[in-house]
Amino acid sequence: MIKRLLSYLLPINIYQKKSEFSKNLEVTWNNGFLVLDSENTNYSFGSLQRVLKKGLKYIGYDRINKFESILILGVAAGSVIETLKNDLKFKGKITGVEIDPTVIEIANKYFGLDQFNNVEIVIDDAFEFVLKTREKYDLIVIDIFQDTTMPNFLFEDFFINRINFLLNVNGFILFNTMILDKKDSERNLAYRTKFSTDYCVRLYPKIEHHNELFTIKKLA
C-alpha cells in the first residue's frame, strides 16, 4: 500500500526480468496502478490499456457483448482481457495468443490473468496460430509489439487475408499500431488500401500520441 501511494509521486519498480522476446520487462506502480513495461514502451495497463479501451468503445460495448468469441493476438499482461471482463462484463469465449511465456508468468503473478473464467491462453507465435486454428471469431484484436517494433508480417497480404478468413461476417478487427516516424505513417496508409469493398476500414490517429488504431468491419 505504501508503494502504491508513493507511486503518485514517482514510479516504483517492484519486479523486473529478462525475456527472450521482450528483452527487459518491468512491473511498476505508476499513479496508483500496476503496469507492465518493456525497455522503451508500455506493454500492458497504463497507456496501452487506454488505447485499446478507446478502440473497443469505437466498436461499441453493446455490440461486443453480443459477440460469442474473441481472439487476442498479443496478450502481454492481459489489459484488454481485463477491460473485456471487468468493464464490458463480456461472457463469451476469449482466446489469447502470446509468444512470450515470461510475459504470461508475470501476468498471472502480478495481474491475475489466470483468475478470469472462459479465457484460454495459448503460448504460440501469432502467425503460426492463425495458420493452425479452425475457429472463427467475432472480434480479433491485434496488439503485437517487440518493444517498439512491429513485426513485418502483420502488414503482409498473406497474414491479412488469413485474419480476414477467420473473421465472421459483421465481426471486427481492432488493430493497434505504433507511429514513430514518416515510414510508419506510410506503412499504415498502405495497409488501409489492402481491404476490398467487403470491409469498412476506419483509422483513428494520434491515440496516446504514438498510436494509430484501425477498426475493420467485415460486411460480407
Rank of each mutant, 00 (worst) to 15 (best):
M1P: 01
R4H: 01
L5I: 14
S7C: 06
Y8E: 08
Y8S: 07
L10C: 09
P11Q: 10
I12C: 09
I12S: 03
I14V: 15
Y15H: 15
Y15L: 11
Q16K: 15
K17L: 13
K18D: 14
K18E: 15
F21S: 10
L25N: 06
L25T: 09
E26M: 12
T28W: 00
D37E: 14
S38Y: 05
S38M: 10
N40Y: 13
T41C: 07
T41W: 02
Y43F: 15
F45G: 00
G46N: 05
G46E: 03
S47V: 13
L48M: 11
Q49A: 12
R50D: 14
L52P: 01
Y58W: 10
D62T: 10
R63L: 15
I64G: 05
I64D: 05
N65W: 08
I70T: 04
L71R: 10
L71T: 12
G78P: 03
G78C: 03
I81G: 01
T83R: 00
K85Y: 07
F90Y: 15
K91S: 14
G92W: 04
T95F: 05
G96H: 06
I99P: 00
D100T: 10
I104M: 02
E105P: 01
E105H: 06
I106H: 00
F111P: 01
G112N: 14
L113R: 05
L113K: 05
D114Y: 08
D114T: 03
N118W: 08
I123T: 10
E128N: 14
K132M: 13
R134D: 14
K136H: 13
D138Y: 06
L139A: 04
I140Q: 00
V141S: 02
D143P: 01
F145Q: 05
Q146V: 10
T148R: 11
T148K: 13
N152D: 15
F153Q: 11
F153A: 10
L154K: 07
L154A: 08
F155W: 09
E156D: 13
F158H: 11
F158S: 13
F159S: 04
N164T: 14
F172W: 15
I173L: 14
I173A: 09
T177R: 03
M178I: 13
I179R: 05
D181L: 09
R187M: 12
R187E: 07
L189Q: 14
A190I: 11
Y191W: 14
T193H: 08
K194H: 07
F195Q: 05
F195A: 06
C200S: 13
V201E: 02
I207Y: 00
I207H: 00
E212Y: 07
T215G: 03
K217H: 00
